[in-house]
Lab assay of single mutants.
Amino acid sequence: MTYKLILNGKTLKGETTTEAVDAATAEKVFKQYANDNGVDGEWTYDDATKTFTVTE
């Protein structure tokens, strides 16, 4: 399945996607991606759209 991440960081905004077997796996990938890019904030997940959002 394809999962999407929306980044609403103070210095980085954008979107990315990943292929993962489940939401938990996608979340690990996205949290590492956000961490690597210096984005740390509040996370939400919408199962209907398979979209994670992180907002600083």
Rank of each mutant, 00 (worst) to 15 (best):
T53M: 09
L7Q: 02
N35S: 13
E27M: 12
N35A: 12
G38D: 12
T51L: 05
T11Y: 15
D47E: 15
D40K: 12
E15R: 07
V39P: 02
G38L: 13
T49K: 09
A26Y: 00
N35V: 13
A20S: 07
A24W: 06
A24D: 09
F30N: 00
T11P: 04
N8W: 09
A24T: 10
T25W: 09
G41Q: 02
T16P: 03
T49W: 04
E27D: 05
D40H: 15
T18S: 05
L7T: 06
V21I: 07
T16I: 11
G41T: 02
K10P: 10
E27N: 05
G38I: 04
D22K: 03
T25E: 09
E19I: 13
T49M: 07
D40Y: 08
K31P: 00
F30P: 00
A26H: 00
T11M: 14
D40L: 11
Y33L: 06
T51K: 03
K28F: 12
M1K: 11
A20T: 06
K10A: 11
T51W: 02
D46L: 04
D46I: 05
K10V: 10
D46C: 05
Y33M: 06
W43E: 00
G41V: 02
L12Q: 14
T49S: 14
N8G: 05
M1F: 12
T53P: 00
D36T: 08
T17E: 15
E19G: 06
T17D: 07
A48R: 10
N8C: 05
Y3F: 08
E56R: 03
E56L: 06
T16V: 15
V39L: 13
T16L: 10
E42T: 13
F52W: 15
T53W: 07
G9N: 04
K31I: 07
T53H: 06
D46P: 00
D47V: 14
D46R: 03
I6G: 01
T53F: 07
G38H: 15
A26R: 00
N37Y: 15
G41I: 01
G14D: 13
A24R: 11
Q32V: 11
N35M: 11
W43A: 01
T49Y: 08
D40N: 10
T17L: 09
E42D: 12
W43T: 01
D36H: 08
G14H: 14
T51F: 02
N8D: 11
T11F: 14
E42A: 12
M1C: 05
F52D: 00
A48T: 14
K31D: 02
F52E: 00
E15M: 05
Y33P: 00
L5A: 02
T44K: 08
D47G: 08
A48G: 12
Y45A: 01
V39R: 02
M1W: 12
A23K: 15
N35D: 12
A20C: 05
A23D: 08
N8S: 09
D22V: 03
D46Q: 06
E15W: 15
E19Y: 09
F30T: 00
A23C: 05
T51M: 04
Y3D: 01
T16S: 14
E56D: 10
V54R: 01
Y3W: 15
I6H: 06
G41F: 03
A23H: 08
L5C: 06
V54S: 02
D47W: 09
K13V: 09
T11D: 15
V39F: 15
I6D: 03
N35C: 06
D46G: 02
G9R: 04
E15C: 05
T17I: 12
K10D: 07
Q32W: 06
D40G: 10
V39I: 13
T44E: 15
K4Q: 05
G38E: 11
K31G: 03
A20W: 03
K10N: 08
T11G: 11
D46H: 10
K4I: 15
L7V: 10
V54Q: 01
M1T: 14
E56G: 05
K13D: 05
Y33S: 02
D40R: 09
E56M: 06
N37P: 01
W43Y: 03
F52H: 02
A48W: 09
K28Q: 11
A26M: 01
G14T: 14
T25G: 09
E27S: 12
E42N: 12
T55F: 11
T49C: 04
T51N: 02
T2D: 05
T18R: 06
V29R: 11
G41Y: 03
A34P: 00
A34C: 06
D47K: 10
A20D: 03
Y3G: 00
T18Q: 07
D46M: 05
G38T: 05
K28D: 09
K13M: 11
E19L: 12
D22R: 03
A34V: 08
V54K: 01
E56I: 08
L5I: 04
K28C: 05
K28G: 12
Y3P: 00
K13Q: 10
T25L: 11
E15G: 05
F30V: 02
N8M: 11
T49N: 11
K28W: 13
N37S: 09
Y33F: 12
T44M: 06
Q32P: 02
Y3C: 01
K50I: 03
I6F: 06
E56A: 07
V54M: 07
G14K: 15
K4S: 07
G9T: 14
T44W: 07
D36L: 12
Y45R: 01
T16F: 13
A26N: 00
A34L: 15
T17A: 08
V39T: 03
L5Y: 02
A20E: 05
T11H: 14
L7N: 02
G14W: 12
V54T: 03
K31R: 08
A34I: 11
N35R: 10
I6K: 13
L5P: 01
I6Y: 07
T44Q: 11
V29W: 09
K10G: 07
T16Q: 14
A34S: 06
M1G: 10
T44N: 14
Y45S: 01
K28R: 12
N8Q: 12
W43V: 02
A48H: 12
T11R: 06
E19F: 13
T18E: 04
K13F: 11
D47N: 07
E19K: 10
K50S: 11
T11A: 08
G38S: 08
A24C: 06
E42H: 10
V39N: 03
T55Q: 08
W43C: 02
E19T: 14
M1L: 12
A23L: 12
E27A: 11
G41E: 01
N37D: 03
V21G: 09
T16W: 15
T2G: 05
A34R: 01
F52P: 00
A20M: 03
T17N: 09
N37Q: 11
E15Q: 09
K50T: 04
G38M: 11
E42I: 12
K13I: 12
L7H: 04
K28A: 14
A23W: 13
T55Y: 08
E42S: 11
T51H: 03
D22F: 04
E27Q: 13
N8I: 13
E15P: 03
L5N: 00
L12C: 06
Y45W: 04
T18P: 01
F30I: 01
T25H: 13
T51C: 04
V54E: 01
E56C: 04
E19S: 14
A48E: 09
E27F: 14
D40F: 12
G41H: 02
F30L: 06
V21S: 09
N37E: 12
N8Y: 06
K28N: 07
K4P: 01
T11Q: 05
N37L: 06
E56P: 04
K31M: 10
G9H: 10
T16E: 10
T17V: 08
N37W: 13
Y45H: 02
K4Y: 14
E27H: 12
G38F: 12
D22I: 03
T55I: 08
V39A: 05
D36G: 06
W43G: 00
K50E: 03
L5Q: 00
K13N: 08
D40Q: 12
T2W: 11
A24G: 09
W43M: 05
A20N: 03
